[in-house]
Amino acid sequence: MATETTTRAKLRWGLLDAVVVVFALIPVLWIASLSFKTPATLTDGRFIPREWTLDNYRTIFDTDQFVRALVNSIGIALIATAVAVVLGAMAAYAIARLDFPGKRLLVGVSLLIAMFPQVSLVSPLFEIERQLHLFDTWPGLILPYITFALPLAIYTLSAFFKQIPWDLEKAAKMDGATQGQAFRRVIAPLAAPGLFTTAILVFIFCWNDFLFAITLTSTERARTVPVALSFFTGESQFEDPTGAICAAAVVITIPIILFVLFFQRRIVSGLTSGAVKG
């Protein structure tokens, strides 16, 4: 009886999961499928291509445009992520551990930044960056990305730091560690899941941004992939670029998948269990 209910429950859950996964994946698979189709069969409405071709991929890697954009995207997103996570970790640590004047204000202001509608900042930023000669440069995108990623980083990280028992840090100090050693050898390894989670979130945010990228760049110097895609034309002006755009879309999803898979393995929950009483 009991086993029967569990198998039935399992079946129900499995079905539900399958529905959700299919629902989420169909558009992605559709794009993947389109990217393997030839221009002639592009609009035949079949899910599985009749003729497979890699032409679309060849096309995008042949155009210098796309490769440059890919390099820009990877570089800008990685740098912004690294800076935001490091700064965010320090701020979050202070917020979780210290009582300093203006702590609530700091938290409040960073919340404010996160809530600020980005669209309304686009034109002032455009003017400012032109004056400062940051327009159409890597730093010109990295800086606003960090600004908007930091609140996110601070929030997720301070939640993680708050979970780490403070006694551990005291114990490390009693064991002869300096503040720095205590952080590096005891706190940081325990905060690692938090650091990786934050890194993933920030990276995805930077990688997917379209708004800043389209307004604050004008050439291949700093244009990122989402923007480059929108400028995409085929090999010739008159060719339908749908296949190529789909191929590019597939290509730019790959780094994110890799990034998540790589870090996900390090996100082992329950890492702090056993530290205190229990």
Partner: peptide, 20 residues
């Protein structure tokens, strides 16, 4: 003096073992 320069060991109520 910092705790590490006092050469004293401490046992905490929560044990505070390093879980990793």
């Amino acid at each position: 003096k910092a705790p590490r320069d006092r050469d004293i060991a401490m046992v905490f109520q929560s044990y505070a073992l390093y879980p990793n």
